[in-house]
């Protein structure tokens, strides 16, 4: 049981990162924009929160936790949304190819983040010396009251930093927004059939811009969680964020574009990713094979969906296609 509890905890921490990434990307893709820049956006979110927190903590002797949280979160969201804005401008206004733009954004985000991450490390006196303890502590604070619940139940469900619960809340809100609200209906229509949404009077360009920027902002919170909670306020230039970003993209497909499925799907991905730690006598090379499991599951899900032929499980019909009203 103890082994499972640790595995589960790891899975939840891991899953929270990709849940943010996937929920943001679902909102983006529902507008018909296939933004493959998720890894880059998560990089941007991570490094911006770190930059903001670092300069705030260095400017004062007594950092106030709530200010730390606000600065880091706002920096992460805005920087990621800016990444979304770059993507939107290139693909919606200039009608550049979405796949190429997205991949470029990934490279761009990773470059920017590692450049500033390196600089920060140097500022603080070398690799490993970078610390934002106050901010990191504030983010890792657990839910008051509930975290005292003892036993395995407490360990399984209540011993996480509060951002893990925010992720679930965001996923639920995104689900309600998409399936219950009028603007959510319009957004889905934009992604399915922009010409129809346009003819019905929805502002296609505005919907696409907003969904992509807000979606990117939410994805970027994954980077925030990674830096502040998962690695506890350090910058590691090891490419983990990038592989997490791709997992988030895979998770979008796994969820069949439904945020509610991202909640359990992300934890499942976490379990599958870490399960190799708990298999005895496994070689290093085989570990890497086990890390493939989330992708294998995604492919299996794709095959099942394709066999069931249910229209509701298909990607938004206009995903990846530019829209121009006077096009014939």
């Amino acid at each position: 049981m103890g082994g499972f509890v640790t595995l589960f905890q790891q899975a939840v921490a891991f899953g929270t990162i990709i849940m943010f990434g996937a929920v943001g990307e679902i909102i983006t893709e529902k507008s018909g924009n296939l933004n493959l820049g998720v890894p880059g956006i998560m990089y941007l979110g991570g490094i911006s929160s770190l930059l903001g927190a670092f300069f705030y903590e260095n400017s004062t002797d007594n950092p106030i936790p709530i200010v730390c949280v606000l600065i880091a979160a706002v920096c992460a969201f805005l920087a990621s949304a800016l990444g979304g804005l770059i993507f939107s401008f290139l693909t919606i206004t200039l009608r550049a190819n979405q796949n190429v733009t997205g991949l470029t954004l990934t490279i761009f985000g990773s470059g920017v983040a590692n450049f500033f991450g390196g600089s920060l490390n140097q500022l603080s006196g070398g690799v490993g010396q970078l610390r934002v303890p106050a901010t990191s502590d504030a983010f890792r604070a657990q839910l008051p009251g509930l975290s005292n619940i003892g036993g395995d139940i407490g360990k399984l469900f209540f011993q996480y930093g509060w951002l893990a619960y925010v992720a679930i809340l965001v996923a639920i809100l995104a689900q309600v927004y998409l399936s219950r609200t009028r603007t959510g209906l319009n957004l889905r229509a934009v992604g399915e059939n922009p010409a129809t949404a346009d003819a019905a009077g929805a502002n296609v360009t505005l919907y696409k811009y907003l969904a992509t920027c807000i979606g990117a902002g939410i994805s970027g919170l994954g980077g925030l969680y990674y830096v502040m909670d998962f690695t506890q306020g350090k910058w590691a230039n090891d490419g983990t964020i990038e592989s997490l970003g791709w997992l988030a993209v895979a998770l979008v497909i796994f969820t069949t574009w439904r945020p509610k499925n991202a909640i359990w799907g992300s934890y499942l991905f976490g379990l599958l990713y870490w399960v190799y730690m708990y298999i005895v006598g496994i070689s290093r090379a085989s570990q890497e094979l086990f890390k493939m499991l989330p992708y294998v599951v995604t492919i299996v899900v794709l095959i099942i969906i394709s066999l069931r032929k249910k229209r509701e499980n298909q990607p938004p019909e206009a995903l990846g296609l530019p829209y121009f009203r006077e096009d014939r």
């Binding site: 209906l185 889905r188 399915e192 003819a199 019905a200 009077g201 929805a202």
Partner: peptide
């Protein structure tokens, strides 16, 4: 206008298609 290529979203119900794009 009723276009030659229908302006309808396939995965929506009839009601949802009518609700689409309506003013708040």
């Amino acid at each position: 206008m009723i276009h030659q290529h229908f302006k309808l979203v396939d995965v929506f119900t009839a009601t949802e298609n009518v609700a689409l794009g309506m003013d708040k």
